[in-house]
Amino acid sequence: MAILVLAEHDNASLKLDTAKVVACGQAIGGDIDVLVIGHDCGDVTSSAQQLNGVRNVLVADASVYANGLAENIADVITEVAADYEHVLAAASSHGKDILPRVAALLDVNQLSEVIEVVSNDTFIRPIYAGNALATVQSLDDKKVMTVRSSAFNAVANDCSADLVTLSQEVAPQVEFVSQSLTESERPELGSAGVIVSGGRALGNSENFTMLEQLADKLGGALGASRAAVDAGYVPNDLQVGQTGKIVAPDLYIAVGISGAIQHLAGMKDSKVIVAINKDPEAPIFQVADYGLEADLFEAVPQLLEQL
C-alpha cells in the first residue's frame, strides 16, 4: 500500500503541517511519498527528504506552479495518483482548496478533517463543531483525505528519502493575476506554540495592540474570535474557530472571549488554556486550565509589566 502526501510550502520553506500529515500516513501504514509542487523550491525538497518514514519525494518544479493555484496542482496530483491508495493533505486553506478538486477528478468521495486512524479504510473525524465524533469507513479504491494536523505530532527530521523528478507539466487551467498578503514577523497561527487571542470585549482594533505586545513577549501568534473579526477589529486570517483556523498550541491565552461553541471548536485541543474574562459564567472557563476573573484592561497591562 502506498500513500501520497501533498507538501505545503511557500517555495522557500516546508510548513510544519506536512510533517504532521506524514505522521497520519504512518498511522495508516504503508510506503509514504511526499509530493512537492512549486517553483525553485530546492530547500522545500531537501526538508521533505528529511522527514522520518518518507520513501520518496516527488518533485514537480515549473513556473506554472509558482503561485500554488489549486486548479493546476490538482491536475498534477491526479496524474500521479494512479500508484497510490491514499492521497493526504493538511486541512488548511491550501489543502481544502486542492483536495476536493482531486476527489472530483478521481470520482471518489473525500474524507475531511481526519483526526484519528482506525484502520487503512476507517477514520474518525469531528462533526457538529467538534461536539461529536464520526467513525467513517471509505469503500473507494482511493482515499482522498484532509488531515487535521493539530491531532498529530510531527515526525522527526532524521531521514534521507530518494528524490524523484516528475517530467510531466500540465497545461495551466487558470492564470495568476495578483495577490495581497499580510506580512508579519510573528509565527503563523496554525504552527505557533503560543497564541494570544482576543474577543469582542477588546472594543476596538487599537486595544488589540495590548495583545500584540503580549504575543511578541511570549514569542507567539495573535488570534481572534469570529466576533472580533466580524466587528472589524482584526483581519479574518487571524480568526480561530470552526470557520477559521483550527489550532492546538502549547499555550492558548483567550482574552475577552466568551467561549462560543464556534470558537471552542478551533482551540479546545490546546495543551494549556488560559482564560481572562470578567464574566464568571463565561463558557470559556469550562475548558480553561487556568481562569482569571478580571477586567482585561487591568489584567493584561499588569501581565505585560511582569514579563
Score class of each variant (00 low, 15 high):
92 S>P: 07
64 V>Q: 06
305 E>F: 05
263 H>I: 14
75 D>L: 15
239 Q>N: 07
113 E>P: 00
169 E>I: 13
244 G>D: 07
30 G>I: 00
203 G>C: 08
246 I>K: 03
286 Q>Y: 00
85 E>G: 14
268 K>H: 14
172 P>F: 00
196 V>N: 13
254 A>G: 03
147 V>W: 06
148 R>M: 07
162 D>Y: 10
267 M>W: 13
251 L>G: 09
12 A>L: 06
161 A>D: 04
155 V>F: 09
251 L>H: 09
172 P>W: 01
53 G>M: 02
62 A>W: 04
222 L>Y: 04
135 T>S: 15
217 K>F: 00
192 A>P: 10
269 D>V: 04
266 G>C: 13
128 Y>Q: 08
251 L>P: 13
62 A>L: 04
225 S>F: 15
248 A>L: 05
242 Q>V: 15
280 P>G: 10
272 V>T: 15
38 G>A: 11
116 E>S: 12
53 G>K: 00
206 E>V: 03
26 Q>N: 06
286 Q>W: 00
37 I>E: 08
175 E>Q: 03
210 M>H: 12
35 L>G: 06
186 R>Y: 07
268 K>W: 02
49 Q>K: 15
281 E>V: 04
307 L>V: 06
235 P>V: 05
65 Y>N: 08
180 S>M: 12
19 A>T: 02
108 V>H: 14
275 A>C: 09
267 M>N: 12
184 S>W: 09
247 V>T: 08
304 L>P: 11
266 G>H: 11
218 L>V: 13
97 D>V: 07
177 V>C: 03
25 G>T: 10
27 A>D: 14
205 S>F: 01
139 L>M: 11
71 E>S: 09
281 E>A: 12
157 N>S: 13
139 L>Y: 06
143 K>T: 03
151 A>N: 09
207 N>G: 06
1 M>R: 09
156 A>W: 01
300 V>M: 07
239 Q>C: 13
198 G>S: 10
120 N>S: 11
77 I>D: 00
153 N>G: 15
112 S>T: 13
215 A>Y: 09
42 G>H: 06
252 Y>W: 05
136 V>F: 02
189 L>G: 14
35 L>D: 07
199 G>M: 14
142 K>F: 05
272 V>E: 11
43 D>I: 02
36 V>Q: 02
